[in-house]
Design a protein around this nucleic acid. Structure first.
Length: 291
DNA sequence: CACCTTGTTTACCACACTGC
DNA sequence: GCAGTGTGGTAAACAAGGTG
């Protein structure tokens, strides 16, 4: 077989199998340098063709997907191990802890050591313990909101988390949460335009960090949907300008890992406020807006 | 107080990515 | 396939905290 022939993988299933094979290799070899050409050889496709097919399958470029996997593993190690940040950076494939810290902060929105402190505060807290505190705060009375997010399955219990980000990239991301079966209300601060909504349904019997840090696949379901937010008066209230019913499914290997610390940070605020019997520190009007 | 370890930031460079 | 652009890489400087 020619190095870049790929002739036996031209069908869709074959392409997907090749991408899955590469992602599995990425996960096994996180600590090694994995340039585009090396990954393309595994498929085996030309670097140019591999790049295009990979992005179609995962919605991310190979380099970004690999970086996301590295950051996800780093988050897990920060939570479950006592390794130093320097050791973790080496274990997930960075030869410079400086690059690691910079990238971690860009992806997660917190530096590694700060993330470890927050994640450990929420470790051991079950999702079901958070539900009563979040119930009643899901839709704040009189608060304007952009959209209500429902799930297509009404019988699944748990904590619904929804994130919205502009389709054309951009760092901004808006998060919201609700206990099932209540819908999650996207805040009025989400600007008009084309967005992509991503939802997570956390199982009530699992630790809150299982899905948000560990990425344990049996601890949550995921869903995706395109969202068009129409132009309108941001201050009109109370207004639901759109209703989304999002199908959920098991997480797939081609799904990019969740990396933002925003839901973790907010749940921590909710849990601590709940135990103290008062409101969380987060801003009521747009409680889950990412930094 | 000096030194050491660990974590973060910054400047610059190589290469991956994107648009044509 | 090419060329411009942007992202991610390294190394080094700097900061913070702990210890003798």
């Amino acid at each position: 077989m020619g190095l870049f022939s790929g002739a036996d993988c031209k069908d869709h299933g074959g392409r997907l199998a090749a991408i899955v094979r590469v992602i599995e290799h990425m996960k096994r070899e996180l600590s090694r340098p994995l340039p585009l050409e090396t990954l393309a050889r595994l498929a085996p496709f030309s670097p140019f063709y591999f790049h295009r097919v990979f992005k179609q399958a995962t919605s991310m470029t190979p380099a970004r997907f690999l970086a996301a996997l590295r950051m996800a593993e780093a988050r897990r190690l920060l939570l479950v191990s006592s390794l130093t940040v320097t050791a973790i950076s080496a274990q997930v494939g960075y030869s410079s802890v400086g690059t690691f810290t910079t990238q971690f902060r860009r992806w997660v929105s917190l530096p590694p050591e700060r993330f470890r402190q927050l994640a450990r505060q929420l470790a051991g807290v079950s999702v079901s313990a958070l539900l009563p505190v979040i119930r009643g705060r899901a839709i704040v009375a009189g608060q304007a909101h952009r959209a209500l997010v429902h799930l297509d399955t009404v019988d699944l219990p748990g904590l619904l988390l929804a994130a919205v980000a502009p389709r054309n990239g951009g760092r901004n991301e808006w998060w919201t949460a609700a206990p099932r079966p209540l819908p999650a209300a996207l805040p009025a601060t989400v600007p008009p335009g084309e967005h992509r909504a991503r939802v997570l349904l956390l199982r009530p019997d699992r630790d809150a960090t299982a899905a948000l840090v560990d990425g344990a696949p049996d601890s949550f379901l995921v869903g995706d949907m395109e969202l068009q937010v129409p132009a309108g008066d941001q201050h009109a209230r109370p207004t639901a300008l759109a209703t989304l019913t999002v199908p959920v499914r098991q997480v797939r290997i081609t799904d990019p890992p969740l990396l933002s610390a925003t839901p973790l940070r907010w749940l921590l605020g909710v849990s601590q406020a709940g135990w103290r019997g008062r409101a969380p520190v987060a801003d009521e009007r747009h409680p889950l807006r990412a930094a």
